[in-house]
Amino acid sequence: MELFLVFIIWAVIAFIIAYFLGRKRQIGFGWSLFFCFFLILPPIGGLVATLLSRKHYAPNPTPSKAKKIWGWVIIVLAAMSFMGNVSMVSKGQATISTFTVLGWCIGFIGLGFYLIELSKGKNFNSKSLTKIN
């Protein structure tokens, strides 16, 4: 019951951050909600990721190769960690921290894909008229 209550509070905070902050920024509602759920120290990681994105009417981010490289590095590392934790679960050695790390891995894989998309100079907010510079 307590766990369910914590989940509800977490979901409400994540929704509030995504709705009131993410929706008005280039990150958009969807990505903001995803990061609030899965990124490290949820929803603080999501809040920071959302606030690192500029407002939706600001100029689109400049295309960057560095972001693409970082994106792939994060995906590879997170995927490796994910596989390691999945093998622990399959062996029956899983604890609560294993599932927490699994959640973070999903968050980091998402972060990797987000960075790859961002490297194209994309604005994820549907309010913005131009999606790509």
Binding site: V48, L51, L52, S53, R54, K55, Y57, A58
Partner: peptide, 20 residues
């Protein structure tokens, strides 16, 4: 560094808002 980047984003957005 993250805190510094948060400040930079807020600063740039503030300038953008003000100009607009």
């Amino acid at each position: 560094y993250l805190a510094y980047r948060l400040f930079l984003v807020a600063h740039d957005d503030y300038k953008e808002d003000r100009n607009r």
